[in-house]
C-alpha cells in the first residue's frame, strides 16, 4: 500500500511537471534536460548551432562561410535601410533604447496594454508608422527581411531574455506552447516531435536541430543561393514539410509560437544573419 501511494505520488509529480501548471522556466529546463539526456556530450552553449552541432563537417563548412559571408551585401542593404532617415527626419535608432543595440533579445515581449505579443518586426513597424511611414509586410523578405538582417546584428552577443509576466502574457505563452507541441498536418507531427523527441535524428539528409537555441540566429541565409529566411518564414517551411498550410507570417499564432519558442532559448547568445543549409 505504501509502495502504491509512493508510486502514485511519484506519478503525480510527473504529471504536474508535464502539465499546464509548470512555469515557463520549468518548461525550458525540462526541454533542455531532454536534449541533454539524449546528447550529454553536446554543450548547451553549442545549441545555437542547431543541426551543425551533430556534424563536424557541416560545422566546418559553416565556419568557412561565416569568415566572409557571401551574402554580406544583403546585410549592407539592410544597414542602408536602417540608417536612412524617415520623412519625419527621425531614424529607426530613435525608436529603440541604445539606438537599437542589444534589444532584439528582449523580443518577443508581451505588451500588457495591447494584450498581445510584440515581435521585433512589430516594433520596427510601429517605429515606421509612428514616423508616418507605411508598415512593411512581415512576410516580405526584401523589406522587413533585409532590414532585420542588419538590425538584429546590433544585438549580436546579447543573451535571449524573454519574460513572461502576468496572466495575459502566460496565456499567450501557453498558446504558443500548444502550437509547438500539437500534432499538425497530414504527417501528424508537432514541432516538438521533430525538435525534441527526434532531435539529432536524420530526416532525409538533415539532422534535426534542438529546440533550445533555435530562435537565436535570425534571419538566416539558406542554401546555395543564400535565400533569406526570417524565423517565422522557417516556421512556415516546417509546417509545409508536415503538409500543413502555413499560418500567417506576422499573425498572432506565429507570434505566440515565437514567444514560447524564444523562451526556450533564454540565456543563449544571439547572432543574426548566419548561414544555414
Amino acid at each position: 500500500m505504501k509502495k502504491l501511494i509512493w508510486f502514485l505520488s511519484g506519478l503525480g509529480c510527473l504529471v504536474a511537471a508535464g502539465g499546464a501548471q509548470a512555469s515557463p522556466e520549468d518548461d525550458r529546463r525540462s526541454v533542455v534536460q531532454a536534449v541533454q539526456e539524449k546528447y550529454p556530450n553536446i554543450k548547451v552553449e553549442d545549441y545555437v548551432y542547431g543541426a551543425l552541432a551533430f556534424s563536424p563537417d557541416a560545422k566546418a563548412q559553416y565556419d568557412a562561410v561565416m569568415t566572409f559571408p557571401p551574402y554580406e551585401a544583403e546585410i549592407d542593404k539592410g544597414a542602408r535601410m536602417w540608417n536612412t532617415p524617415f520623412k519625419s527626419g527621425k531614424r529607426y535608432a530613435d525608436c529603440f533604447p541604445r539606438a537599437g543595440k542589444d534589444v532584439a533579445g528582449n523580443y518577443p515581449m508581451f505588451d500588457n496594454a495591447a494584450k498581445k505579443v510584440v515581435t521585433f518586426e512589430m516594433a520596427i513597424n510601429r517605429c515606421r508608422t509612428d514616423n508616418g511611414e507605411a508598415p512593411y509586410k512581415h512576410s516580405d523578405m526584401n523589406t522587413m527581411g533585409l532590414l532585420t538582417a542588419y538590425a538584429r546584428t546590433l544585438s549580436d552577443g546579447m543573451k535571449m531574455n524573454i519574460k513572461v509576466e502576468g496572466k495575459d502574457a502566460l496565456a499567450a505563452y501557453e498558446a504558443g506552447k500548444r502550437l509547438f507541441h500539437q500534432r499538425r498536418g497530414q504527417l501528424n507531427f508537432s514541432c516538438a516531435g521533430c525538435h525534441i523527441n527526434y532531435v539529432g535524428s536524420v530526416l532525409r539528409t538533415e539532422y534535426l536541430s534542438m529546440a533550445p537555441g533555435q530562435a537565436t540566429h535570425w534571419p538566416a541565409f539558406r542554401g546555395g543561393d543564400y535565400t533569406l529566411f526570417t524565423l517565422q518564414r522557417r516556421y512556415a517551411a516546417c509546417h509545409q514539410m508536415v503538409r500543413l498550410v502555413p499560418l500567417e507570417i506576422g499573425g498572432e499564432e506565429y507570434n505566440n509560437l515565437e514567444y514560447y519558442h524564444s523562451y526556450l532559448s533564454n540565456g543563449l547568445p544571439l547572432k543574426a544573419s548566419v548561414f544555414r543549409k
Binding site: Q182, R184, A192
Partner: peptide, 18 residues
C-alpha cells in the same frame, strides 16, 4: 474528410517533453 481530421488534431494529447 481531411479537413475534419485536421480539426481532430486539436484534441490530440500534446507531444514532446515540456
Amino acid at each position: 474528410e481531411q479537413a475534419s481530421l485536421g480539426m481532430g488534431q486539436l484534441a490530440y494529447p500534446l507531444m514532446g517533453r515540456y
